[in-house]
Simulated assay, not measured.
Amino acid sequence: MKHYLLSVMQPVGEPPEPEVLEEIMHRVEGFHAELRAADAWVFAGGLHGPETATVLRAGEGGDVLVTDGPYTESKEYLGGICLIKVPDLDAALDWGRRAARATTLPIEVRPFMGEADG
């Protein structure tokens, strides 16, 4: 089995209305239940907005520069992640499609390095 990261790409701006968000979260919970039932679940979680980020950069002489705020300004940010284990990219893309339908947001699917298929 190979591990894949499903990244939820959240648009910057106001979140959906509470009743809309409640329905989305209900679908996401169902998606997570499907992952568990298929033994593809590893971990999932939502992230606070980019304004809560702290960026650390290595500098000269071992110093580390600490900066509040996101690493980059963007129209989208990483809003949540789901780590899955599946046989191959086709299976990961299938789960990514399900995640996109559940969240109504773009999902980026990426394999972890150093893992053989199968």
Rank of each mutant, 00 (worst) to 15 (best):
M1K: 12
K2D: 07
H3W: 07
L5I: 09
L5Y: 06
L5Q: 06
L5N: 03
L5H: 06
L6R: 00
V8C: 08
Q10V: 11
Q10W: 10
P15V: 01
P16A: 15
P16H: 11
P18A: 03
V20F: 08
V20G: 08
V20P: 07
L21V: 12
E22F: 10
E22V: 12
E23F: 05
I24N: 04
I24E: 05
M25F: 15
M25C: 10
H26P: 10
R27W: 05
F31K: 01
H32D: 15
A40K: 00
F43S: 10
A44C: 11
G45W: 03
G46H: 06
L47W: 09
P50W: 00
E51T: 09
A53F: 08
V55G: 07
L56N: 12
L56H: 15
R57W: 13
E60T: 09
G61P: 02
G61S: 13
G62C: 03
G62H: 04
D63A: 14
V64H: 05
V64K: 06
V64Q: 04
L65C: 10
V66A: 13
T67P: 05
D68N: 12
G69V: 02
G69P: 00
G69T: 03
P70V: 01
P70S: 03
P70K: 00
Y71L: 15
E73K: 11
E73G: 12
S74M: 10
S74V: 05
E76C: 04
E76R: 12
E76V: 10
Y77P: 01
I81D: 08
C82K: 02
L83F: 05
L83I: 15
L83S: 03
I84K: 02
V86S: 01
V86Y: 00
P87D: 14
D88M: 04
L89W: 08
L89T: 14
D90S: 14
A91D: 10
L93E: 12
L93A: 08
D94A: 15
G96D: 02
G96K: 02
G96A: 02
R98A: 13
A99V: 04
A100H: 12
A100V: 08
A100T: 15
R101Y: 09
A102C: 07
A102H: 00
T103S: 11
L105W: 06
I107R: 00
I107A: 01
E108K: 08
E108T: 07
V109H: 01
V109I: 09
R110N: 05
R110D: 04
P111F: 03
E115F: 08
D117F: 09
G118L: 14
